[in-house]
């Protein structure tokens, strides 16, 4: 702050513009870039640089988005998507953490389960949705399974790798205090792995959201994914983009929330 003061030279009171610049700081450029892109979008649509029924002006999208705030289909759809994403995310995360730690610590389990996991891992989740319909139907079971699967891998991989990097001294410390195996896992390995787990969990949030939407597009009766397709067929690109916008805001908010929680709950992250 003092540096800015010096740069402003003789003026003892910083100008209003200066104070805004300081508050926004380096974010200013990011905000400006987004504003410029949106402006280009608006102009390109209004002046007919891009002619397509699926390229409405931004203001029209914003208007559609605002008009939905009073309780439109988008919010209802978003709630349905979030409910699925959250359920699948919870299941996938718990399994990913549990298996990541168990496999990280048990050679027997590693030999038994790792090949299977490695084979399933590269399969893109959307590709398994159609054949899974036979077993899981087209409803929530299918979607939540797909979301869990998509969530599982980053969480598992990060946890598994995190367990491997837990320092041996920490484990030996627990051993010298005659701590049981289960207690060592729960009280030492798990918290020591938490920063790695958190990284996996954060990656998984966006994946869970994406797979929720994709699964709704393939086999949806509700949710944002279904809404997007429905609006395309209903020739309402403004509502479609408005839904995309709500989705983007949700994704951004979830990520921010995650970072805040991370700082709160894992203050030792990056400190060991």
């Amino acid at each position: 702050m003092s540096v800015v003061g010096t740069l402003e030279g003789a003026s003892s009171k910083p100008s209003a513009a200066g104070s805004i610049r300081r508050r926004l700081g380096p974010r200013l450029y990011g905000v400006l870039l987004i504003a410029a892109i949106l402006l280009f979008w608006e102009v390109s649509s209004r002046l007919g640089w891009i002619v397509s029924a699926y390229w409405p002006p931004v203001t029209k999208i914003l208007w559609a988005a605002i008009s939905q705030l009073g309780g439109g289909d988008i919010l209802v759809s978003l709630a349905a998507t979030l409910r699925r994403a959250l359920t699948g995310y919870a299941i996938g995360s718990v399994l990913g953490i549990a298996l990541g730690i168990l496999l990280g610590k048990s050679k027997v389990l590693r030999i038994a389960l790792l090949p299977l996991i490695e084979i399933v891992r590269p399969i893109p989740t959307p590709a398994v949705i159609p054949p899974l319909i036979l077993f899981l139907g087209v409803d929530d079971a299918l979607k939540i399974f797909a979301i869990s699967l998509a969530t599982f891998f980053p969480v598992f991989t990060n946890t598994f790798a995190g367990v491997a990097t837990v320092d041996d001294t920490l484990i030996q410390t627990a051993r010298t205090f005659r701590t049981s195996w289960a207690r060592t896992l729960l009280r030492v390995v798990l918290p020591a792995t938490l920063p790695a787990i958190a990284a996996g969990l954060r990656t998984a949030t966006s994946l869970a959201l994406v797979v929720a939407v994709v699964s709704e597009m393939v086999a949806g009766s509700s949710g944002i994914g279904y809404y997007l397709v429905e609006m395309q067929y209903a020739l309402r690109p403004d509502l479609m983009y408005a839904a995309v916008m709500y989705l983007a805001i949700t994704g951004y908010a979830v990520n921010r929330l995650f970072l805040v929680l991370e700082a709160r709950l894992i203050p030792w992250m990056g400190k060991t």
Partner: peptide, 20 residues
């Protein structure tokens, strides 16, 4: 009980799987 889907592709798998 209407189950709207975006495309017809899952109609038959859904029928066989007992969803519809």
């Amino acid at each position: 009980d209407l189950a709207p889907t975006a495309g017809g592709a899952i109609g038959i798998p859904g029928l066989v799987g007992g969803s519809y």
